[in-house]
Design a protein around this nucleic acid. Structure first.
Lengths: 230, 230
DNA sequence: CGTGAGTTTGATTCGAATCAATGGAAGTGG
DNA sequence: CCACTTCCATTGATTCGAATCAAACTCACG
């Protein structure tokens, strides 16, 4: 289902770093080959090894990026929410996606055709610089991820994840809306669902966290940021 | 210790992807702000959080890139050997190195000044494309790394590492020269030294691998590539 | 209501870390 | 050249975190 871009998406996209500060011409040229597509919850977008012909921006919903092992286990590499790009790095690589992507929820995506976008980039080194910066940030995140997987225990990774995803709400408490079912978050932080459940309970027992269905509240984020769980 | 580039390095650098296919002018301009520096074994190059003013190419030796935990443990992210770049992604980021770098052995590096190099890049989108490609490849490697850390057991990661670093030698056997002390390789694949030792023995017991001090021989790489250790 | 996916809880197993000690190999200095 | 230190690798005993296996429980949905 490919259609032109909605008005609202055009405006939102223009504010993201990759496109900010462009004049009208430049911008319209950049998005001229972009199309909207809609995914149902669970719908598959691309698989590891598929030829990479486009990259994406999430206008609405959550996309699950994951690797699958030969045994059928899957490891969620990232959950990509609103206003974020994914798979943009692939445009300069072996031309194959290194991961799988599925819609975690109902989602609306903006797809950028790879060839057209490369042409657009090639016209101006400044445009490339934006992309380079975005990719650097992405790499930095991946290194952090490796670091956490090796240097931290499950409980620490969970806490870290919660802190990274918390927002102060009306009452001043720090709220975390889980962006996916718990088993998916579990895979994201690198533990099994059962372990995830237990870890979460440990955190509530200690008093770090209050749980209320799919939303959590963190008691004292600042104090916690240094904390190690024992 | 900063000195101009050696003749041999100039020629070798010219053959690497980032610079290949440039005319003399372009190339000389690219390396005009590059300097040679020499590190003694164990010498520190930069720390996580240091302002990033340069990136590097390894002319000789091995550089250890690593993260350190507050507890003092360190995780080796990568061992960068001859003819490879590192820290190039940082030029477009927060201007701080996200990792530590030390010389694992005696090493000769070519340092590229960040500002000058960015200027050089800015002159031509094609130059940026080379860098984008290099960074994509790097990201792909990081994703693989995460995948292995979460989806595979220690023995599998070790085997994988050995396969990735094996070369067929004169006799047709597949040889692996360990690029660093075993404890460092251990950290690289994400296990403790003691575990590394035990895993290596398990592999030799099974008959996958022959060990001879710092060099290893893999019996049947092709068969092994699919293998899971149980 | 039933059905089934997602979550929780409990008992058990397993992989790897930890703690502790021994065994080289390389390098230093008298 | 040998004693001595030091770093690195190995080996064994034990502990610990997390996976696995198995079973209940919850709750949204047809």
């Amino acid at each position: 289902m490919n259609t032109p871009l909605h008005r609202a998406d055009l405006e939102a996209l223009r504010r993201v770093y990759l496109f900010s500060g462009l004049d009208d011409d430049e911008y319209l040229q950049a998005v001229s080959h972009a199309t909207t597509l809609t995914l149902a919850p669970g719908q598959h977008l691309f698989s590891q090894g598929d030829p990479a012909e486009a990259f994406y921006w999430v206008a609405e919903g959550v996309i699950r990026l994951f690797r699958a092992s030969p045994q059928g286990d899957e490891k969620v590499i990232d959950l990509v929410g609103q206003n974020r790009f994914f798979a943009e790095a692939v445009l300069f690589m072996g031309s194959r996606y290194p991961i799988n992507a599925s819609a975690q929820s109902h989602a609306r995506l903006i797809a950028f055709d790879g060839n057209s976008f490369r042409e657009w980039l090639a016209q101006d080194a400044n445009r490339c610089f934006r992309l380079l910066a975005a990719m650097s940030a992405r790499m930095h995140k991946l290194v952090n991820e490796i670091d956490r997987l090796t240097l931290m225990k499950g409980a620490d990774r969970l806490l870290q994840y919660l802190l990274d995803h918390s927002d102060p709400d009306e009452t001043g408490r720090h709220k975390v809306e889980l962006e996916a079912p718990k088993q998916v978050i579990a895979s994201r932080i690198g533990v099994k669902p059962e372990t995830f459940s237990r870890l979460l309970h440990k955190l509530t027992d200690i008093g770090c966290v209050e749980m209320d269905g799919t939303t959590l509240y963190i008691r004292d984020p600042e104090a916690m940021r240094q904390t190690r769980i024992e």
